[in-house]
Design a protein around this nucleic acid. Structure first.
Lengths: 161, 161
DNA sequence: TTAGTTGCAAATATTTTGCAACCGC
DNA sequence: GCGGTTGCAAAATATTTGCAACTAA
């Protein structure tokens, strides 16, 4: 139907600069670099994003990273969630299907689960508690069962909390 | 069956001092004060607990609060969860039936939901993802639907994130 | 030109740690 | 008395903010 929707993420990607300006914001190289870093890293803390960007270009300031992530999240380009106690981790919004996370306290591995697996639960919360859950932000802590595959391996994610 | 189980929480409560010592820990007035404060406050950040205890007795040190909460959690007397981005909130373990929380981003209200409401979902995660979810630690962010009852009212809990 | 942005440094906020004095057992 | 604890101060982290210089539009 839609004339040219080859890659939806492409469309969105090519659109954000306009949206940004439409909201009265300005397109700066820092913002481009930071958004690109978030997409490249998939799941990263402000600190990791700062390091990634610094490695790429001439260092930008850490406070710019914080301020930019705030703007990007406001624009709906990135989202954050908590894979561990400390530090929120940011990820690009148009990075695949919606999912939530399971964080294992034993091995630290973070598992992504398609949101459809929570559909019924979410529906129940909506019906019984009048609450619309933000599944994409959800991180569930627990442990692998019957036992962790390889304690202390897998993703280099944090594993506290 | 059990001879004297009038109040289970009573039994547990009268038992923790022994358990504490059995683990090689010592019973100090600070630990008693902090545990009492956690129980009284229901959901409180280390800072709030510190304030509560300070108001009661002659001020104890904030670092003692952090260290004590760590010990109490290790003993299974208290648990923490995240009702907002910043600062974890602690609560007593024998404070009623197990439940998880729903945190509304609009009005900041925190709703407690009995864990049985998540039983099926948890079972599914166990069966399909091999993951045993820690429901008591779970906090789900989202918004009331169709609309918040009274935006900005209710519980004095944090409401960011 | 104008107002949104950035870099920088200082301020905040949180949590942790070293260590000597202290006190529960 | 021994060894776990505490108070205190300083350190380590994490995030925010004031402000002058800068620059996208």
């Amino acid at each position: 139907m839609t004339p040219m929707a080859a890659e939806d993420s492409e469309r969105i990607e090519g659109d954000w600069r306009e949206r940004l300006r439409a909201q009265g914001y300005r397109l700066t190289p820092q913002r481009e670099l930071i958004l690109a870093a978030v997409e490249r890293l998939e799941h990263a803390t402000p600190d990791e994003i700062f390091a990634e960007v610094s490695a790429q270009s001439t260092a930008i300031n850490i406070s710019t990273v914080y301020r930019t992530l705030e703007v990007l999240e406001e624009l709906g380009l990135v989202r954050h969630l908590h894979l561990s106690d400390r530090a929120p981790t940011y990820h690009s919004v148009h990075g695949g299907p919606a999912h939530f996370h399971l964080s294992c306290r034993n091995c630290g591995q973070v598992i992504s689960v398609g949101e459809e697996r929570a559909a019924e639960f979410v529906g129940r919360l909506r019906a019984e508690a009048g609450f619309e859950a933000d599944v994409a932000h959800l991180t569930i802590f627990g442990v692998h069962v019957p036992h962790c595959p390889q304690p202390g391996s897998e993703e280099p994610h944090g594993h506290d909390d």
